[in-house]
Design a protein around this nucleic acid. Structure first.
Lengths: 110, 110
DNA sequence: CGGATTGGTGGATGATTGTCAAACCGTCCC
DNA sequence: GGGACGGTTTGACAATCATCCACCAATCCG
């Protein structure tokens, strides 16, 4: 499982706050984050993510941005990729930030 | 003081998380945020903000983005503008977020 | 093998953005 | 009135970005 190959991602200490915020300052990527909040691994298929309206290459692009910002990690197994939150790394580097973000994402839109 | 005119800004309930994160996903605006963290009012002069390298119109643009996102408020008094954090509004709408962000901004860059 | 599945790459395109420069505007004050 | 001051607006420009499309690559399975 977790000893499969992983796509390139920044080391925990290299995760940059502004880069993370820039990554999350997009509605699609914010939606991906909330999908990943369950801690589970997720496939890249737009249909599994409520993103039917987007081309698969667009979703691929957004997932790359999240991964390169250090928000997610991607495990490669066969022809599937399993994306999940780097919760431990984020919590260690920016204590309380992820929880506050996920809670804020629930705030009513009005 | 606080009954002076204020530049247009979103109502507390209209503050949008993604818009806030997008606003803060820029190094200059993140630096402004940390400057405003003291809760005090600040002038717009780049030289008072450690932004000597930027044109005053560029700083004006960044401050507008922050204000329109709901991060800051701008009080107009005579020919001066006094910018400050909307801490109460942000704390009410996104509990813990601002504190986590300001703490995260202190994390070593490595 | 050969087709289907899963997902990424590269190019193109239109929109947004960060920056500067110059002109502008209201206010203060001599 | 007429500068000087503090900021904003507008325009220009290059860079970045989100999106789509067509094609590609690796893997799985019958």
């Amino acid at each position: 499982m977790s000893d499969d190959e992983r796509l390139p991602q920044p080391a925990p200490a290299e995760i940059d706050l502004v880069t993370v915020l820039h990554a999350l300052g997009d509605p699609v990527r914010m939606r991906l984050l909330t999908s990943y909040a369950d801690g589970a691994e997720h496939s890249c298929d737009p249909r599994h993510l409520g993103l039917d309206h987007l081309h698969k290459s667009t979703v691929s692009h957004h997932m790359r941005v999240l991964r390169e910002a250090g928000v997610t990690t991607t495990r490669v197994a066969g022809r599937n990729r399993y994306v999940s939150l780097r919760r431990a790394d984020l919590d260690a580097r920016f204590p309380g930030l992820l929880d506050a973000l996920l809670a804020a994402a629930q705030a009513p839109t009005d």
